[in-house]
Simulated assay, not measured.
Amino acid sequence: MTYYILKVAITAVLVVLISEISKRSSFIGAVLASVPLTSVLAMLWLYVDTGDVGKVSDLASSVFWLVLPSLALFVALPVLLAQGVNFYLALVVSIGITAICYWVMVIVLRYYGVEL
């Protein structure tokens, strides 16, 4: 149980740290947020938990294929905000658009024989 609390604490501290740094410098916050910290932490925790490099490799490969549709959020959100859409509505719509892009990507990848 202590191990899980440690994992949650480290992950949460990184997210809070990035949000606090972003208050002072959006550029530095963006640089830190754009580094795939979540993916790196997930791969680290997966390896520590399982010792299975195959699972880590599969996760890294899946993350690679899903980066492209995740970018839809970072296009849609600023466009919606610039059009005066309420922040929370713009965020929800952007997440919805991103979910659709994920779905389309998974279908396209399956068509070409790539299983995630």
Results as ranks from 00 to 15, higher is better:
30 A>F: 08
30 A>W: 07
30 A>S: 13
33 A>I: 09
34 S>H: 14
34 S>K: 00
36 P>D: 11
36 P>N: 06
37 L>D: 14
37 L>H: 13
39 S>W: 11
39 S>K: 06
39 S>V: 09
42 A>S: 13
43 M>Q: 06
43 M>A: 14
43 M>C: 10
44 L>W: 05
45 W>D: 00
45 W>M: 11
46 L>K: 00
48 V>T: 11
53 V>R: 08
55 K>P: 08
56 V>H: 05
58 D>G: 11
58 D>Y: 05
61 S>T: 03
61 S>A: 14
61 S>P: 05
66 L>N: 09
67 V>R: 01
69 P>L: 08
69 P>M: 07
71 L>E: 00
73 L>E: 01
74 F>A: 07
75 V>E: 01
76 A>S: 13
77 L>W: 07
77 L>D: 03
77 L>Y: 07
78 P>H: 05
79 V>D: 00
79 V>R: 07
79 V>G: 04
80 L>P: 03
82 A>T: 13
82 A>Q: 09
85 V>H: 02
86 N>D: 15
86 N>L: 11
87 F>R: 12
89 L>E: 04
89 L>I: 13
89 L>W: 12
90 A>V: 04
91 L>G: 13
92 V>M: 14
93 V>R: 00
94 S>C: 06
95 I>E: 12
96 G>C: 10
97 I>C: 13
97 I>G: 05
98 T>R: 01
98 T>M: 08
98 T>V: 06
99 A>Y: 10
100 I>P: 00
102 Y>C: 00
102 Y>E: 01
105 M>I: 09
106 V>C: 03
106 V>M: 13
108 V>H: 08
108 V>W: 08
